[in-house]
Structures are given as structure tokens and as C-alpha cells.
């Protein structure tokens, strides 16, 4: 087993029912563990983009790409170069908040450029978009407070520039 690395894999697939099941069925069968997965529309109606974050050694990742590319519904699959890509994730976090700590929470939100999207009597919901480590940092600061619920979208990513900056 080689060194474990994390990769963002972009999969362009036919936009039809059951496609996600085909991909996850393959991953389940071959034991590839998904860290995060998002499915989204693209500018082409017949194509969806599945963005997968996956961790494993080089050998496993190559196998994953090879096996996935054989699925008939997969039009293209490539790993994104982290340096040359825009990678984003959206986080919603609900924190217990009353008069005593609302101010402090608002200050933290301002530092991270998070939005307050709900303010209720006993709680507030903060929204933050960014790279994974920024969201992780934000959550770790908030862990000093009482976090009630967390929801993250998983990442979406595009390579920079006019062409796909696929990894060599």
C-alpha cells in the first residue's frame, strides 16, 4: 500500500435516472470510500457533473478512475489539480445563541465573511462558502460554542482557464 492522498475527481455523466446508483454501486463493490460527493447540472442539459473527493493510495485512485471510465454512462473522468482549480464548499451551521454570545458569534462570522441567514430566539444559522480547510477552521472556532446542527454540501470544483487542467 502506498501513501494515502486526497484527490478531487470530476466525472461527466449522462443526465439520466440511475446514473448515481451505477457509480455508487461500483464504488461499493470495489471498496472505494467516498469522502464527499456532489451531483449538479452543467450548461449542457444532457450532462451532469459528479464531483467526488476520495482518499486512497495512487494505485487505488488509478483503479477507481479506470473502472469508473468503463461505465457506459461516464463521458469523461479526470482528477483536478488542486493548485489550478477553484474548489468550493457551502456550510450551514446552527449554533445555540442568546443575548450573551450573539455579539461574539457575529464577530467570528465577520472575520470569516460568513453570513447570518437566520436569527431566532435561542439560535442562529451561519452560512459560509469556501475551501474545505476554511470551513474546517470556522467549525473548529465555533466548537467553543454549542453547535446544534451542521450541514455541508460536499465540494464543487472547476479547473481554472479555458481548458480542462487535468492532472498529468
Amino acid at each position: 500500500m502506498g501513501r494515502s492522498i486526497k484527490k478531487v475527481v470530476s466525472v461527466l455523466v449522462d443526465n439520466e435516472p440511475g446514473v448515481l446508483a451505477r457509480i455508487t454501486s461500483l464504488f461499493g463493490r470495489r471498496g472505494y470510500n467516498i469522502e464527499s460527493l456532489t451531483v449538479s447540472a452543467t450548461n449542457v442539459k444532457s450532462v451532469s457533473r459528479i464531483t467526488i473527493v476520495i482518499e486512497g493510495d495512487e494505485h487505488m485512485l488509478n483503479q477507481m478512475i479506470g473502472q469508473t471510465s468503463k461505465l457506459h454512462v461516464v463521458q469523461d473522468i479526470f482528477t483536478l489539480n488542486y493548485e489550478r482549480s477553484v474548489v468550493r464548499e457551502l456550510l450551514l451551521v446552527k449554533v445555540a445563541a442568546d443575548e450573551s454570545n450573539r455579539g461574539a458569534l457575529t464577530e467570528i462570522a465577520n472575520v470569516y465573511k460568513a453570513k447570518i441567514v437566520d436569527l431566532s430566539i435561542g439560535s442562529m444559522i451561519l452560512e459560509l462558502t469556501g475551501e474545505q480547510n476554511k470551513l474546517d477552521g470556522f467549525l473548529s472556532i465555533l466548537s467553543e460554542y454549542s453547535i446544534m446542527e451542521v450541514c455541508r454540501t460536499g465540494i464543487t470544483a472547476l479547473s481554472r482557464g479555458a481548458i480542462n487542467n487535468e492532472e498529468d
Binding site: G18, S25, K70, H72
Partner: peptide, 9 residues
């Protein structure tokens, strides 16, 4: 669904 993992497509 049943034959997804045992067919090419």
C-alpha cells in the same frame, strides 16, 4: 437495479 453490477450496461 439487480443486474447493475453484473452487466456492462
Amino acid at each position: 437495479g439487480i443486474t447493475m453490477p453484473i452487466t456492462k450496461h
